[in-house]
Design a protein around this nucleic acid. Structure first.
Lengths: 344, 344
DNA sequence: TTGTACGCGTTATCAC
DNA sequence: GTGATAACGCGTACAA
């Protein structure tokens, strides 16, 4: 199939290619009439410039990539839409790259940066302790979003847009304690988790400590590895095992809403009720948490603000070429019907 | 930031660029030693070929695009992952493009095809009656997945991988009738919907007809337009309105699980129970339907098989350059706890 | 205001 | 087995 090129358009219009190029790219010095004629021809022949050639020629390809760790993560849906709108609105090209759970997102970013001559990168999700030697191989600014990563002073030209996972996790567990719970199980990520799991687990420990509740390992349950750590299935399965063990607890805190919902199912299946027999709390503030029955008490991340901020920070970094910017948002403890106050 | 190019590598190794190219692309006639030296240098300098240049040069860019209408659609998550794996495995480049609800996915595809020199396209979601004049502007094979689109004889070089939305919808409503329900409300897409909504609504009408139940317009509720037709929020809101109107019905059939979950919430909020007071049925077979409480009776689409088949069909079309292939899968009516038998 | 010619980084086609 | 070199389609400096 013959693809029509800029040369063809030029030939048809009886002008040079540069004139066509000027018309396409809204250059100032061009005769309006000539421009109109060219644009009409372009429309008529449905000519669309070849992206590869443009990117190749332009020293700067004006592309921004969003790397989402787990595209199916319901957390990211809205954010991606917002980011795309923002980025396209700024006349940048938008590339969405999905990163598998076993994949190292920074390695993917490095490859992508060179392949596509990126101008900037936004990470959605990923590890909270990325390998900085890899990060430094990135020569363009990047923003880590939804993960409260802490980077050393040597790394530069990046931003972090997130909530304070540790503090917010603390708040939730603190809240559970204040509702009279003393035996609080936690469904958390893998032992060796490098993502938000560790941060949220730390918050859990600190809250218990504050309330003088000893940390009980039998109440700490790790999700099983495999495809999708933060899945309902995983939450269900681990909760089922926990219940079968006969460990006593009055509240169950899951570090993700999806896990919490799986947990609820296991509780129901065991013939128990939420929150009458077990209180359940989640984290993230998915829409779903609200629509679940009973609605889930959860920590709501301001996802849309975070997306907007992530793109703002990125463009700022692109302009300044350097800097370090931490934007930590405050989350909202959203009370649902899944946690009840119990008597001491 | 200086990007290293193939020329640099060639210079460093003391060879010509073509030799380096041969090493990169696994060409046969190259001295293993030379190749090793080159590959080592490449690794050392972390050279990564520029994608734009490759695509520009290669007559065929070997890129396949997946256009997903609504990336946040939980239906697509797993499918996208499978598709990506399949496509990369076949040594093709994979591009994921999100399409907004108001956007015409075919127009996006046309632009993308030229911009990126695509080799093939997979549509996830979209309209069931696409504009064929636009589709014919696509010069590469495409597969419409999850939508049972019917195209005229004049269009060629495409595949459809879907379930029979009408028949499966019929089956669900038929099932509801067989459970003793006579007043069955439906939550469907927009009046003027051109997607699966219309097909599923038709199945609903036909099932009622079979059981001699008159079609009652007051039981047909359309989702409101705006951002996200198939959302829990929309389902909630429309069900709330329906309940307030005081229309009587014993079962509620939503054409998507997400809508069904929103509906359940509205029912609970009205002080009613599912399924005791109202039976609820969904469509799609999301994981979530299973984990919801009560678990949702739904029509389960074989999403993974469909994804695998979609890529198989696409590659077949790419090789044959033409053809029309309809792969209609059979869905599975998954009984949950949200529908109960009622006495006549 | 417009056209010509060059180069972006890569692969393929030749000679050698 | 290897190295020049001509494309690929576009943007732009420069000349006209």
């Amino acid at each position: 199939m013959e693809q029509i090129t800029i040369k063809e358009i030029a030939r048809i219009c009886g002008v040079g290619v540069s004139t066509v190029s000027r018309a396409i790219n809204d250059h100032p010095d061009i005769n309006p009439e000539t421009k109109k004629k060219i644009m009409d021809t372009i429309a008529k022949y449905r000519y669309i410039p070849n992206n590869s050639a443009r990117n190749l020629k332009r020293s700067e390809s004006n592309t921004i990539a969003v790397l989402a760790k787990g595209i199916s993560n319901p957390l990211f849906g809205k954010m991606i839409q917002l980011l795309e709108k923002d980025i396209l609105g700024k006349q940048y090209l938008f590339v969405l790259q999905q990163v598998d759970e076993e994949e190292n997102e920074v390695e993917t970013a490095i490859r992508l940066e060179k392949e596509k001559r990126l101008k900037g990168i936004i990470f959605l999700g990923g590890t909270s302790h990325p390998r900085e030697d890899l990060l430094r191989q990135l020569t363009v600014p990047f923003v880590i979003c939804t993960v409260n990563a802490q980077l050393s002073e040597e790394t530069d030209g990046f931003g972090v847009v997130a909530i304070d996972d540790e503090a917010e996790s603390f708040r939730m567990v603190d809240y559970l304690c204040s509702m009279g719970h003393k035996k609080i199980a936690i469904l958390t990520a893998l032992e060796r988790d490098s993502g938000i799991g560790r941060l949220r687990l730390t918050g859990y420990r600190e809250a218990l400590e504050k309330h003088g509740i000893p940390y009980d390992e039998s109440l700490v349950v790790s999700m099983q590895p495999g495809q999708g750590t933060y899945t309902m299935e995983n939450g269900y399965e681990q909760t089922r095992v926990l219940l079968e063990k006969g460990v006593q607890f009055t509240a169950l805190y899951a570090i993700a809403d999806t896990i919490a919902i799986g947990a609820c199912k296991a509780i129901f299946d065991a013939g128990l009720r939420v929150p009458d027999d077990v209180s359940v709390a989640g984290f993230d503030g998915l829409d779903l948490a609200d629509y679940y029955h009973p609605s889930l008490t959860t920590v709501e991340q301001p996802l849309e603000e975070m997306a907007t901020e992530a793109s703002r920070v990125l463009f700022e970094l692109i302009n300044k070429k350097q800097g370090r910017e931490y934007q930590i948002f405050r989350a909202n403890l959203r009370e649902g019907q899944s946690v009840r106050r119990i008597q001491e």
